[in-house]
């Protein structure tokens, strides 16, 4: 494997995006009732009937860790992408991760029903934007692949 100098910036950008996707739903764009050290299992709600119920946005937050981690790995692999084929395929996978970032809150694990929940006012818009950025970034890498080749 050969290190590609030209891919350093794209790789770092992709890894950063991945970290944001993984960390965002737990920190600055939190899903509902994300609790920290004192209450690590904060992804549920206590109903009036004193019942503990899991929330869909909690699953979204968990799943986005996976997507973010996968994106970071793709970014890491980009550091060693010298051939045009590997640039294209890694960029495509990066764009697909963008699609998955959106698909989780939009269709797969979803968010809470009420629009005023933070998962709807913060997390979902944040993930949409990150997803779009990832897709556009992947597409841009494919368009400018020739300039990135070693």
């Amino acid at each position: 494997m050969e290190f590609s100098k030209k891919m350093v910036i794209p790789a770092i950008v992709l890894m950063l995006l991945g970290v944001l996707v993984a960390v965002g739903p737990w920190t600055f764009a939190p899903v509902c009732e994300v609790h920290t050290a004192e209450n690590p299992n904060g992804l549920w709600v206590i109903t009036a009937a004193n019942k503990t119920l899991p929330m869909p946005c909690g699953y979204t937050a968990r799943a986005e860790i996976g997507i973010g981690a996968a994106t970071v790995i793709v970014g890491g692999m980009m550091l060693f992408a010298t051939a045009i084929g590997s640039i294209i395929s890694l960029a495509a996978v990066g764009a697909m991760m963008g699609g998955a970032t959106i698909a989780l809150p939009a269709a797969l694990t979803k968010t809470c029903a009420l629009s005023s929940h933070t998962c709807n006012t913060l997390t979902a818009p944040f993930l949409w934007v990150m997803g779009i950025v990832l897709i556009l970034f992947g597409a841009a890498l494919i368009v400018y692949r020739k300039k990135l080749m070693k």
Binding site: C32, V45, T47, A48, A49, L53, C112, L114, S116
Partner: peptide
Amino acid sequence: ATLSASCCALPT
């Protein structure tokens, strides 16, 4: 205003 309903985390 409910405290929390079974469907939702926030009061309904």
